[in-house]
Structure formats: C-alpha cells, structure tokens
C-alpha cells in the first residue's frame, strides 16, 4: 500500500488540493474518496465543499474561519488512520448500465473501430466486456468518467471537437470511457448510448452513480433501447445497482 503523504497545494487562499498521486489509479482514487467520506462525516468548521477527482481531493474553505494550518492538521489527523486495506479499495456498489452499440445510436462506432483496427462488433464486445470504475464527475452535470477501458480501445481524442453528444452517449477518449449526460461538443468518440438518465433534475437523487462505484455495460439492441428510453423518460431507473458490501 502506498503510504506516501499527500501534497497540500494552495488553490488561492480559500481552496486546497490534497493530492495523493498524479495518475489514474484505483488505489490513489480510493484514498481520495476515503478522505472525502471522513471529511463529510465530520466537516471541520470553515470547510465549504469538497470535490473528489481522480487523484486529489479539492476543497473550498473559508480562511477567516479556519487557518490553512488548522485545516491541514485536521486532514492529517484523518489521513493517519486511513485504513486502506483491501476492502477499502473495493467499490461499495456495482451498476449495470444498459448500452446500445447499434450504429443508429452509436454514432461514431464505425469511425472509432476503423481507427483502432477493429470491427464495430469487436469494439462493442470489448467495451461491454470490461469492468469500469467511476472515478469522478466533471465537465458538465452527470458526466461520469470511467477507468478500466481495455487497452485495445485507447484512442487519441479528436483534434477538433465533434458536434454535440446525444444524451446518454457512451464515449471513449484517451484511456477512458465516459457517459455524457447532456448534449455538448466533445473530442471523444460516441461508441454507444444508454437510455439511463445519469442526471435527472426531477429525480431524487438527481445523480445515480457515486464516485468509486463499479460500472458494467449490458449490450441492448435498438428495439430494447427505445423501450427502456421511454421507461427512463417516465422516471424509471433502468440501470441496476447491486450493493457489494
């Protein structure tokens, strides 16, 4: 287990980044999330908000209420007993998310497959056969970044962004996969589409997947996509969640 002490990086006088590493790594991310959980369970006075990312916990705080030194001391007190045993590295839940790889919904699957020397079918099989970790959200509400993309699907991002993604677009770019919760231009490739709403304002909770959760994709055909899409539109959660411990 990595027992290196984290770096405390000032982001102005009212924010601090606690950096556990500089790579996309499940063990590093697990430490970020463990610290986040402890801070949220008993937030020091003056702590305003935490944002877990791949490898660092970003926190906004009010330095007129807590000094940097006091905040760092509080964090160090929480990090010291971070019992990062094998169980703490395991995701708390696994999501099975339906995903349609039919080119009708997977707009860029042919283009991405050609670039990767694959067929659309083999790309879909590889993508749906992998176990992912939801590392973090970013970019826009509900955009969920997934590690665990098979090496054979690692693909440089486009030099020029494509047009807006479809809602629920399942994307690949670099060594990551990503579920795009809303239409935005992106340099990634749309290789599938889920009928699930990763973000729904009227649903409680509005967001489904928690950072650290495991994610799998379950291939569905176009007809099933339309059926599940109608159900998801009516407010039903069509992805399945299993508690792992």
């Amino acid at each position: 287990m990595d027992d290196e002490t984290p770096r405390f990086l000032d982001c102005g006088e009212a924010a601090l980044s606690v950096e556990f590493g500089d790579s996309v790594d499940p063990a590093v991310n697990a430490r970020v999330l463990a610290l986040d959980e402890r801070l949220r369970a008993a937030p020091p006075a003056g702590l305003r908000e935490t944002t877990p990312t791949y490898r660092a916990l970003f926190m906004r705080y009010e330095p007129l209420e807590i000094s940097r030194a006091a905040l760092v001391a509080a964090i160090e007190g929480l990090i010291a007993p971070l019992d990062m045993d094998a169980r703490a590295l395991q995701p708390a839940a696994r999501w099975t998310i339906p995903c349609c790889y039919d080119p009708e919904f997977a707009e860029d699957i042919g283009e991405a497959a050609a670039l990767l020397g694959q067929t659309a079918q083999s790309l879909a099989q590889l993508h749906a056969g992998a176990d992912y970790r939801a590392y973090m959200y970013g970019f826009a509400p509900g955009w969920c970044y997934l590690g665990g993309l098979p090496q054979a699907l690692a693909i440089p991002r486009r030099a020029t962004p494509r047009g807006p993604t479809p809602q629920g677009g399942t994307l690949i770019g670099g060594a990551l996969s990503l579920i795009a919760a809303s239409p935005m231009p992106t340099g990634w490739y749309v290789v599938g589409r889920t009928p699930e709403r990763m973000f729904a304002l009227d649903r409680d909770p509005p967001f489904l997947v928690a950072p650290g959760d495991a994610v799998r994709f379950e291939p569905i055909d176009a007809k099933t996509f339309l059926t599940l899409d109608a159900r998801a539109l009516a407010g039903e959660t069509v992805a399945r969640r299993e508690t792992l411990f």
Binding site: S17, D22, S23, V24, R55, A56, R60, Y145
Partner: peptide, 11 residues
Amino acid sequence: DIVSDGVAMGA
C-alpha cells in the same frame, strides 16, 4: 496535460 483536478474561482 495533467490528470484533471479541482478548479478554484480565479485559477
């Protein structure tokens, strides 16, 4: 390129 992290107002 860095591995994405949090961004403060005024960064």
